[in-house]
Design a protein around this nucleic acid. Structure first.
Length: 210
DNA sequence: CGTTGGATTGGCT
DNA sequence: GCCAATCCAACGC
């Protein structure tokens, strides 16, 4: 069994475990010019089918169909009519779950990313779900791409997995429904996260538990 | 068929 | 901190 097969099995088995396992993985994009852009994933969020905040909560539709597809494929959607967001599908086909990729530590193709983003600050290149899609040139044409196929123009290279020293979990970001569980996972040592601190609501949640 | 609002971002007060 | 940008699926009538 290959390393990609094992990772796909993890994706299929548990969305929350997948979200943790994806932190530290290398995301690679080979663009139209054959130029390689890549970054180490440092921030993820888990979205399960039973979660009212998930696009899949009310069952499959036109936008979210890919969430119900094969684990390890890309679910890309447009938000606010402006930005794209990249997810990795998880859970068995037929179950609508996915992991949102929220930030990367930029590695290869810095110049191309800076050009795509009109930004030179490396910390500001991929520190948000919309930003990383802009930096890597990811749009809805990648919906359904198999991210665990080594020939895909957008892929994970699991042989380059660089595990974080520490994974922290917090409440997810930007949701209108109140959150209870910590389903956002970050490399606690990374300088490339979308937020510098834990969201304030997470602190409230911890205090209320006592 | 019209309305609503969103897993965001960047620019301005 | 506030808000516009700009698309479109979901929902209500």
């Amino acid at each position: 069994m290959s390393i990609s097969d094992r990772l796909r099995t993890t994706f299929e088995t548990s969305t929350v475990l997948a979200a943790r396992q994806i932190v530290g993985q290398l995301l690679v994009r080979i663009d139209e010019d054959g130029c390689r852009r890549s970054g180490r994933i440092v921030e993820t969020e888990a979205y399960t089918q039973s979660d009212p905040s998930s696009h899949s909560y009310r069952g499959p539709g036109e936008r979210n169909a890919q969430m119900f597809g094969t684990p390890g494929t890309a679910y890309v959607y447009l938000i606010y009519g402006v930005h794209h967001c990249l997810n990795i599908t998880t859970a068995p086909a037929g179950t609508g779950e996915a992991v949102l990729i929220r930030a990367l530590e930029p590695l290869d193709g810095l110049h191309a990313m800076m050009q795509a983003r009109s930004v030179t600050d490396i910390e500001a290149l991929c520190n948000g779900p919309g930003k990383l899609c802009q930096a890597l040139g990811i749009d809805r044409t990648f919906n359904g791409t198999d991210l665990l196929d080594s020939k895909s123009p957008l892929r994970i290279e699991p042989e380059r997995y660089h595990p974080p020293q520490r994974i922290d979990s917090t409440l997810r970001i930007g949701l209108s429904i109140p959150q209870r569980e910590h389903l956002r996972f970050v490399d606690g040592k990374s300088r490339f996260l979308s937020r510098k601190r834990v969201p304030e609501s997470a602190v409230t949640q911890v205090d209320r538990r006592r």
